[in-house]
């Protein structure tokens, strides 16, 4: 019986190729398109080339997620508690996962991980956030210099701005001041 189960061949970013259950892989819209529209993945020679963001480790995580949610008859509570546990991983992997899920167009997982990342950011100081995400602090100098600037546009200017005239022209200054008011 097990042999009958259709499989699909996937190639991850490190060029390794593996076989996974088609039913589960089809959960990802990108893979689904490749199979249905292009007839890919049916053998090792025409394995589906996954996007660069999908490493083998990420693929295995994503398939775990799909495997769980593909089972019918699970209660919302079960699904929710699975999801909660699923995103309890370190921030770096969470970012990788978000990016991989996004490249496979797996929207529910992208929402799940994005929400988890948002929770990490929420209520933290800029310095803390930079530490968590290892961001370069390449703006601080500008802030010091431009601190004294004030947005002196009148409300009318802003209004005409809002109503669509030259709405595209932004400058760094206004944004910075905006943040500090």
């Amino acid at each position: 019986m097990k042999m009958m189960k259709p499989y699909v061949w996937l190639q991850t970013s490190d060029d390794s190729i593996q076989q996974v259950e088609q039913e589960i892989a089809m959960f990802c819209p990108l893979i689904c398109q490749e199979i249905i529209q292009k007839g890919m993945g049916s053998s090792k020679n025409c394995a589906i080339c996954l996007p660069q963001q999908v490493s083998p480790a990420m693929l295995s995580l994503i398939l775990d997620y799909c495997r769980f949610h593909q089972v019918p008859g699970r209660s919302n509570k079960e699904r929710k508690s699975y999801d909660e546990k699923f995103v309890r991983i370190d921030t770096e992997r969470l970012c990788e996962l978000t990016s991989a899920a996004d490249s496979l167009q797996l929207k529910p997982l992208v929402d799940l991980t994005s929400r988890a990342l948002a929770r990490i950011i929420e209520g933290k100081t800029p310095e803390e956030i930079r530490d968590i995400f290892h961001l370069p602090d390449d703006l601080t100098e500008n802030v010091e210099v431009e601190e004294e600037h004030v947005d002196d546009r009148s409300v009318d200017d802003l209004l005409s701005f809002i109503n669509g005239n030259d709405g595209g022209k932004l400058n760094i200054l206004t944004i910075l001041i905006f943040v500090f008011t």
């Binding site: 800029p126 930079r130 370069p136 602090d137 703006l139 760094i172 905006f178 943040v179």
Partner: peptide, 11 residues
């Protein structure tokens, strides 16, 4: 909005 001060990329 506050995240715009994080770095150039985030501006």
């Amino acid at each position: 909005v506050r995240t715009s001060v994080l770095s150039k990329k985030w501006l």
